[in-house]
């Protein structure tokens, strides 16, 4: 806590945190355009299972990604209580399906740890670091990397 107080404002960032299978994830709030309720998607053919399809976001056709499935944590059984986080990352706008949004956290750089080397998880590619606050551990996801991975052909054709 002391660290937070001592820090100057400039290297502090705000993260929106959300839950997926009991783990807490964080996303840079500056990347988030809006948060909306789950709506039925239109499925896309020949795409991996974690791409849930596309929805109409006020005239824009928005691809929706099941975040849990993307991180290899299993498919989400979406209900009206689930939310879609609309992310603006780089040139892309994508929706992330998550269980619920839990909190907004202010994290300073000193509270972010690198991902431990020995942990080899599917998700590591998209993780910026781990924030440790009051005994809570939040995995900070890189929205840019996550969104950019959609454009790459790698792995996308596996279902085709």
């Amino acid at each position: 806590m002391d660290a937070t107080v001592n820090q100057t404002g400039q290297d502090r960032r705000q993260y929106i945190t959300f839950l997926a299978t009991g783990q807490e994830f964080g996303a840079d709030i500056m990347m988030i355009r809006e948060i909306r309720g789950w709506t039925e998607t239109t499925a896309l053919p020949h795409v991996p299972a974690y791409v849930r399809g596309v929805i109409n976001l006020r005239g824009m056709v928005l691809p929706v990604i099941d975040l849990k499935a993307r991180l290899g944590l299993g498919m989400t059984a979406a209900t009206a209580k689930h939310v879609i986080i609309v992310v603006n990352a780089g040139d892309r706008t994508v929706g992330l399906l998550v269980d619920a949004v839990s909190d907004i956290l202010t994290v300073s750089t000193s509270e972010i740890q690198a991902v431990p080397d020995m942990v080899h998880e599917n998700q590591n590619e998209y993780v910026d670091g781990i924030a440790v606050l009051d005994g809570r551990m939040v995995t900070l996801l890189s929205m840019t990397k996550l969104a950019a991975s959609l454009g790459a052909d790698k792995g996308l054709d596996q279902a085709a």
Partner: peptide
């Protein structure tokens, strides 16, 4: 077009929004 947000899918030219608001 949704290619800019996603990528090209062979066999799909683009998307549209129908009268009921669905894609």
């Amino acid at each position: 077009s949704f290619e800019s947000n996603f990528r090209h899918i062979e066999g799909i030219a683009a998307a549209t929004i129908l009268g009921d608001g669905r894609v």
